[in-house]
Design a protein around this nucleic acid. Sequence first.
DNA 1: CGTTCTCGCGCG
DNA 2: AAAGCGCGCGAGAACG
Length: 680
Amino acid sequence: MVSRPYQTGAPDPAAIPLSAKGAPVPTITIDFETRSEADLKTVGPWVYAAHPSTEILCMAYEVKGKSGVCTGITGLTRDLDWLARFYLFGAEGLVEAHNVQFERAIWFHIMTGRFNYRNIAAWRWRDSAAKAAANALPRALGKAGAALGLDVQKDEGGRRIMLKMSKPRKPTKHNPATWHEDPADRWRLFEYCLDDVLAEKALSEACDPLVAFEHKVWQIDQAINTRGVYVDLDAIQGAIDIIAEVEKKAVRKLEKITDGEVTSAGQVARLVKWVGDQGVELPNLQAATVDAALGADLPDDVRAALGVRRLLGKTSVKKYQAMKARASADGRVRSHLIYCGAERSGRWAGSGIQIQNYPRGSIKDPVELDNIFELIKARDLDSLEMIYDDKITDVLASCLRGCLRAPPGRDLIAADYSSIEARVLVWLCKDRRALKLFEAGADLYVDMAASIYSIRPEDVTPNKRQLGKVAILGLGYGMGSDTFINTAKGYGVPLSDELARRVVYDVYRPKYDKVVKLWRYLETGARTTIETGRESRVGRITFRKDGGRLLMDLPSGRSLVYQGARLRPRRNARRGAEATEISYMGLGINKQWTRLYSYGAKLTENAVQAIARDLLAAALVRVEAADYPIVLHLHDEIVAEVDKDFGSLKEFCKLMERRPKWAKGLPVVAEGWRGERFRK
DNA sequence: CGTTCTCGCGCG
DNA sequence: AAAGCGCGCGAGAACG
């Protein structure tokens, strides 16, 4: 495997490349339709494009008002028409696609790798889905077009044809063909592909372009997604084998106990029924329910059956399959991060292997984990069971992170910001007391936990601190006492109604009165701007109106977008309440484009998360510029892969701690580790 | 039988 | 006056 595209993605020196004459270079919009035995959703674009069965059915393009569909791209002839060839290879313009990782992968593996077309340099790629996302529009082309009311919209009928033609069909006796080849369908597919290109183009033009800094961030994002993160395929396969073995043993046991009534751990309804028949009524088999039941008196066989369920109920083990499926031949998993995947704040979302929700794991000692990895690779289930007994799935969950690692001879360097959201929150509301505490190195989560439990700070355990953290953040975003009780219960902390009320209304809100004021100011500011169209400044935040959109200008220069913002009559109006509420259009339940509503505390949360995200984004730029190639990042943490003798953790933390100009006075601290395997 | 939804889980 | 929220994924239920 060539390393070519994986090393590219150097930051663009200019946001808008200019031709020799100084005019912006043209953008050609392209879209491929393909078919393959590989499932795109399961394996991701890079493995999909590299799969030998993957074929290009057509490529549609649009440039300067002209469009076309190139079919029969085989590499044997000059089968792209001249216009496409001119703008792709002659004019060296920008090349835009919707979710461009797919087009990049196809271009690299098939157009260049198989057909010898010239590669397209990293700086030329653009992504209309990234633009849509940065404008708080749906990433999905059809939904974004509909949300904007564009004339050119997604062709749903054509989409069905595409889905049919892109997958192998089941050969029958009458028709042994592997693919759907109906000529009428082929024409419909070409039409669909062309429509898509036109819709993408229209969407792209309807969106604000990324501001210069964001464009740089996006390019680094592309570099990270294209570079990928190396995974330990040997350990992954070992874990998969061990899980299969554990499962086989456990299911045999389950079958025996239930006398054949339950034959797999996934049969929730059957197991509930069987347990019921034994005289134990359970509402469901969620982890907490099973744990609670196991804590009480139980018939022995019910206890054993639930134990098996607990053992196999861990969904985290599925992630090993995902890592295996999405790893390319060079052992790297790519396209694992989605730029502006979080609609409101612009934070990244995870994709595929979803690194953002790996369990923290109960085993943390790197040395112990190293030993476990050796046993896993040796498929030594006996030793693992001897040491860890029925905790074996906890062991496997703890090893997930470590399967992301540096390739042989290299290291990972990682650091994360401590309590970044809390710091941004107090910075944003200019709470000088809390800022001083942070500057003095105090831990506000511990402080809060001490208040909740009425204990001394030095007696706060990590678990109690976790509740303190949830309290600081949740209560900072307006959480009421009822939700606080539920949240605390989730951490195994029963709170009386009275205590919860005291914490929320007598401890938190008076102590953080500046936060409470910020809620009010942001609410008023947003309302004023929506009503009058005038700018409202709320400290470091500015609201502006642009057409139907409410823009929240962040200190970084990025703006959060609230599409279709207006004040609407309050639902559930009550006496004494404001008659209206702030509302806007966004992705609601089931990712439907719907009218949502907001209020001061929620706007506060949006701003805080967005600012924390911008701090991380700025750090990505600095870290990458210092030649630490980033392989992944998660909200407040950056992981880079370096040669053994390159750089230092100290320098890495310093790079993260250096603040952009706009973040003056924001106390940030980064801490991390250096090692071969990813860990918390 | 395949698709869509709903919910719970895990992270931040 | 009353409000934490945001992701993606997997499994099972509901739908056609």
